[in-house]
């Protein structure tokens, strides 16, 4: 494989392939099942897509950010469990180089499943598809998870009293480098003294 990752948030490795898989599949965006099906060789039974948290109000899940092109399913390269020992990687070095999420105590396989690479896993070993990554995030960030489920943390759009689109953790936070990035601000307001050069300009 000659896939290289651009820097930035798109190096979320799984990301690309849902885009690829989704292109060949109907709009069921990137569910666990399609991902597993695309994996082909993956004979493992996909975990039943866990229901969205029951306490979420009626809503639509926003589309997760796209994977780097050609990178997913991971199983196209990782066809078997590999050496689980933390080490410097030769291939995913860009992610490893820009990894700021509890490094150095954390390592790929703490979240990515070694045996079934197209999934994540919880600390209890349960597999989690990429579309439900919030369950994984919520293991450590329980306070944010709780706030997110009731709509206090994170963004929602749509109806305040009805159907909402809710965004996943990874829509705003790069899982490998989760701090929210600084933005260029929109222009400041024009002070009253500079609003118009002349009264003709103000009152044409």
């Amino acid at each position: 494989m000659s896939v290289r990752f651009p820097r930035g948030r798109s190096c979320f490795p799984l990301a690309a392939a849902v885009a690829v898989a989704a292109a060949t599949l109907p709009a069921t965006l990137a569910g666990a099942a399609p991902a597993a099906a695309a994996a082909g060789a993956e004979k493992a039974v996909a975990p039943a897509p866990a229901a969205r948290p029951a306490d979420l109000p009626p809503g639509i899940q926003a589309e997760p950010p796209p994977f780097t092109e050609g990178i997913f399913p991971c199983s196209q390269c990782h066809d078997r469990a590999a050496d689980p020992k933390p080490r410097q990687l030769a291939f995913h070095d860009e992610i490893q180089g820009d990894f700021h999420h509890g490094a150095p105590t954390r390592w790929c396989l703490d979240c990515h499943d070694n045996a079934k690479r197209d999934f994540l896993h919880l600390t209890n070993g349960d597999l989690v598809p990429f579309t439900e990554s919030y369950r994984l995030c919520g293991q450590c960030h329980g306070d944010k998870y709780r706030d997110w489920r009731v709509g206090v943390h994170g963004k929602r759009t749509g109806m305040w009293d009805g159907q909402k689109t809710y965004f996943l953790c990874v829509n705003c936070h790069n899982p490998h480098n989760p701090r929210f990035k600084a933005l260029k601000p929109e222009p400041p307001p024009v002070p009253p003294s500079k609003q118009a050069a002349s009264s003709q300009e103000m009152h044409p």
């Binding site: 994170g154 963004k155 749509g158 009293d161 705003c172």
Partner: peptide
């Protein structure tokens, strides 16, 4: 009409 105000929908940090 049941919708969020525009400022709520645009806010990039929620």
């Amino acid at each position: 009409a049941g919708r969020y105000p525009a400022c709520v929908e645009i806010c990039p940090v929620g």
